[in-house]
Every structure is written in C-alpha cells, then in structure tokens.
Amino acid sequence: MYLGRVIGTCVATVKYEGMQGYRLLIVEPVDDEGRVTGDPHVAVDVTQAGPGETVFLVGSREAALACDPSFVPVDAAVVGIVDALDVP
C-alpha cells in the first residue's frame, strides 16, 4: 500500500462491465515530502477523492478486492484519503 496524489480523472464509458460505476483517477506515487516516487497510473476510486488530494492506494489483487464485485480487472485502487501524515 502506498501514498499517492490525485492528478486527474479518466473517463471510459466502454470498459469491462464489472467496472461500471467506479470513477477512474490518475494518480502519481509520492512520498511524505511530496516528491514523486513512481510513474503516474490510473486507479479505481473507492473513496470519492478529488484532484490534488493525497490518498493511499493498494495494488495488485487487493485493489480488485476493494471493489464490489471483486472479480474485476483492476490492479490499483484508491482506498483512503489521507487527512494527515505525521512523520516526526
């Protein structure tokens, strides 16, 4: 599970039927200081996160399990909006 920032949204009307009803967000992995630590990618949104928000995501099989139905071709899902990151 990793930290990310939402940098955009993606609309796809024609897609695998299990994915209907889920917003697609474009996220880039970041670290606690906001530095980008990976490539941007598209993730299913489970928490109604908006652009610019810091979120945390889960990848691979667990991303599909965050969706309902869970047998969907999803390998990244935004599963939480980060209110604060307390790194002393």
Binding site: L3, D32, F56, V79, G80, L85, D86
Partner: peptide
C-alpha cells in the same frame, strides 16, 4: 516506521486499524 497515516474517509476494511508509514 517513519510515522502514522491519519485517514478518516477510507475503505471499511481499514476502520479501527492503525496505518504506519514505513
């Protein structure tokens, strides 16, 4: 462990669970 992640809006599987940033 570097710190803690505070998140109120999240998937129910994470409710009542502490998230640590490592």
């Amino acid at each position: 462990v570097l710190g803690t992640v505070v998140s109120t809006i999240k998937h129910p599987a994470f409710d009542h669970r502490t998230l640590l940033y490592c």
